[in-house]
């Protein structure tokens, strides 16, 4: 549905050229949600803006719904863009228009008759759950509501493709969830292909089917979400996965933590489950085999694309010898173990 072939984009500043994208190739199959994740400055914003040619690539091909956009006249391009929806981090609603008029905007561009606009906008606003807000101005809406208006607005022209430029980055976690659920719903219900860029692994985990990792203008890794989560190849991909599973040692444990073992102290372990870890009930196995009790202090486990992964902080109660054997046992199950200290 979306195909980028060997996209290179250079920006020229005075005398020096900055390469924002180099030789990026990716394909988003119809009906899928494709996520591009990267740190800020990695080129992900430029990448998504190349898809509807808000940014014209220096070289390469952009094919959306079988149409090569690169050589279109500006008139043809404007027409093609009406079938490529886009939503933004900062919503970009017109402050001079009400919610209703904002959604009507893209229909007006096509000179849709008034009656049809009335019906279509009402339908769209109920689709995004804003039935009661027709005559409000954007300034009176919350961030989540604004993004819903933006989604309704972009759906008005019946796009086949939806581009999401950090669409949830300005929203709080709960609102992010609800907007992501809405996007997933749109994807399923209207069969709209979605390409989104984000710096949050949670977004990818929640709704994407496929993901690409971008760094310094290059796609360094791409594949199905389950594949990337279970077998990340690059350090950056691992880092993004870890960032979505970040665990801090609670403060009062931190205060008691010492580096060397002591008679009255117990080891504090960090267990890291990845896609390769054997999916066994390991805690109870360890308890049975080595007479070790484990106190789970903090844990974050997740499930994406059919694999379980996560981290866990446990305090281990047992003899030192048995503790060491337990660690070895975990390691044999491909669970990464780190002794953080003794508490």
């Amino acid at each position: 549905m979306i195909e980028l072939r060997n996209i290179t984009k250079k920006f020229y500043q005075k005398t020096k050229a900055i390469t924002a994208l180099s030789d990026v190739t990716l394909t988003v199959p119809e009906g899928k949600i494709f996520g591009v994740i990267g740190a800020s400055g990695a080129g992900k914003s430029t990448l998504i803006r190349c898809v509807n040619l808000l940014e014209k690539p220096t070289s390469g091909e952009v094919i959306v719904d079988g149409q090569n956009l690169i050589n279109l006249s500006s008139k043809e391009l404007a027409k093609a863009r009406r079938h490529i929806g886009m939503i933004f981090q900062h919503f970009n609603l017109l402050s001079s228009r009400t919610v209703f008029e904002n959604v009507a905007f893209s229909l007006e561009l096509d000179h849709t008759p008034k009656q049809e606009i009335q019906k279509r906008v009402s339908d769209l606003l109920s689709l995004v759950g804003l039935d009661e807000k027709h005559h409000d101005y954007p300034v009176n809406l919350s961030g989540g509501q604004k993004q819903r208006v933006a989604i309704a607005r972009t759906l008005a022209s019946n796009p086949k493709v939806l581009l999401c430029d950090e669409a949830t980055s300005a929203l709080d976690p709960a609102t992010t969830k609800s907007i992501l659920a809405l996007l997933k719903d749109i994807n399923k219900r209207l069969n709209i292909t979605i390409l989104l860029i984000t710096h949050e692994m949670d977004v990818v985990k929640d709704i994407c089917d496929e993901v690409a990792v971008i760094s310094e203008g290059q796609l360094i890794e791409q594949g199905a979400v389950s594949e990337i989560f279970s077998h990340p190849k690059t350090a950056l991909a691992k880092e993004f996965i870890a960032s979505s599973l970040n665990l801090e040692i609670p403060v009062d444990y931190k205060e008691r933590l010492v580096a060397a073992p002591a008679a009255d102290k117990r080891p504090l372990l960090k267990l890291e489950f990845t896609g390769q870890s054997v999916d066994d009930p390991v805690l109870s196995e360890v308890a049975r085999l080595f007479q070790i009790d484990s106190n789970v202090i903090s844990a974050r486990m997740d499930y994406a694309g059919g694999v379980k992964f996560g981290v866990m902080l446990i305090e281990v109660f047992g003899t030192q010898e048995n503790s060491l054997r337990a660690i070895e046992f975990y390691q044999n199950k491909n669970i990464k173990v780190e002794v953080l200290g003794y508490v």
């Binding site: 027409k79 009406r82 905007f105 561009l109 607005r153």
Partner: peptide, 14 residues
């Protein structure tokens, strides 16, 4: 705000 012009361009406005 430049974003508004960008959004309009993305929607295919002349």
């Amino acid at each position: 705000p430049g974003g508004l012009v960008e959004a309009a361009r993305a929607m295919g406005a002349t």
